[in-house]
Design a binder for these strands. Structure first.
Lengths: 208, 208
DNA sequence: GATAAACAGTGACAATTGTTACATTACTGT
DNA sequence: ACAGTAATGTAACAATTGTCACTGTTTATC
């Protein structure tokens, strides 16, 4: 287990990798699994070895607003933040591609901050990059209309999957932007007319 | 200077207070001053002794979207996050009530994390509470229409000023919610008819 | 192959929000 | 008291977004 950890988290020091290996459990989840629910107590800090996770903010009426992806080499900032205070999760996390996760027990998360400089830097960097990503999400909803938000959404998904073929239904997109399917269909049609996308069933092709 | 620091930041250990006193500069700003601009490099971690600061996210067209207040005893999470990486500010901060600030030079921010447990906990707690506040902001814009967003906005301001008399013009509110003055006037009128507020010039009275 | 279920297209209309234009009211300074 | 300015009120209309109703199309299942 040492080797893959070192490879996926290259900034970790040798001692930290050993500590991770000795103390952390590996857990696997299937696509569709929900690994964290809103209101649930967090017992571990989660590091992603492989696969993809989508992180959502939920409202009382079942709305699921997409915030960001977690990918290999990244960690769930919320699970770190809540760690020290033993707080409830403020978010929901859903597996979109089978994942392997490193579960670091909360007390260790804290202890390592003092012991391993590279863990400290990893945690701080995780905070920073998530905070910045969330600020960009605020931009998109605070300053932009739905057409631009949709483009932003599609681009982010393309970045993560590393391709131009997005396997998403209109309904799925609508839910994650908290609007209705018809609105998304309408806007996508306009984007198609502008030559930005090509529309297929369960498949949106980004043309530029 | 020791005494006020200890009083405003009660969680700080005695040694930390001494270190703060010995190394940090106190700086004052007047209402209206902008103490941090988007894109500016951050050279200090900012702690608030007295006064009030509003933190905004800006867009290219001059929009200023209000995110949260900074009050005495609090610190700017962005200035901590950017500290370690010497990054540019992602936000704009404006003084709304004359402030006194403790400016902690960036290298110390980092050094103290290892030296002072109470500093470490303060920093982590600052991250946590700001992250949570930002998530609530996302809720309000992602899930709610302008009428509810306005109520949320007014409540937050009432909480901070500790009174029911909000000295805000409609134009000011409109800018901070990124909408137009007319929309705010319209919605406030409706709220007045529902008996939630009483409207005066430059003064909105919350009735419940 | 028939049938159901999921997905997508679209027109019509409602509700909300944005914009324009102008009137009215309240404060400011002289 | 008066002019000038900032703040607010409001009507009319445009644009965007939300909702409803219904159609067709593809996919999965039996």
């Amino acid at each position: 287990m040492l080797d893959p950890i070192k490879k996926i988290f290259p900034s970790f020091s040798t001692e930290l990798v050993k500590d991770v290996d000795a103390n952390a459990a590996i857990q696997s989840f299937k696509a569709g699994d929900i690994i964290m629910r809103t209101g649930q107590y967090i017992k571990n800090t989660v590091l992603v070895i492989s696969g993809k996770i989508k992180v959502y903010r939920e409202d009382e009426n079942g709305g699921e607003f997409f915030m960001y992806y977690l990918q290999p080499g990244q960690a769930c900032a919320i699970s770190m933040i809540c760690a020290t205070k033993n707080e409830k999760s403020q978010i929901m996390a859903k597996v979109v591609e089978d994942v392997e996760l490193i579960m670091v027990p909360l007390p260790l998360m804290d202890k390592w901050m003092m012991q391993h400089r590279s863990w400290y830097e990893f945690v701080i960097d995780t905070y920073r990059s998530r905070f910045e990503e969330v600020l960009e999400v605020i931009d998109s909803i605070a300053f932009r209309a739905m057409d631009e938000r949709l483009e932003f959404y599609l681009k982010r998904h393309a970045d993560v999957c590393g391709c131009n073929e997005l396997k998403l239904s209109h309904q799925e997109i609508a839910s994650e932007l908290n609007t209705s399917r018809e609105v998304i269909s309408r806007l996508l049609k306009k984007m198609e007319q502008r030559g930005i996308v090509a529309l297929h069933r369960n498949n949106i092709e980004l043309l530029k």
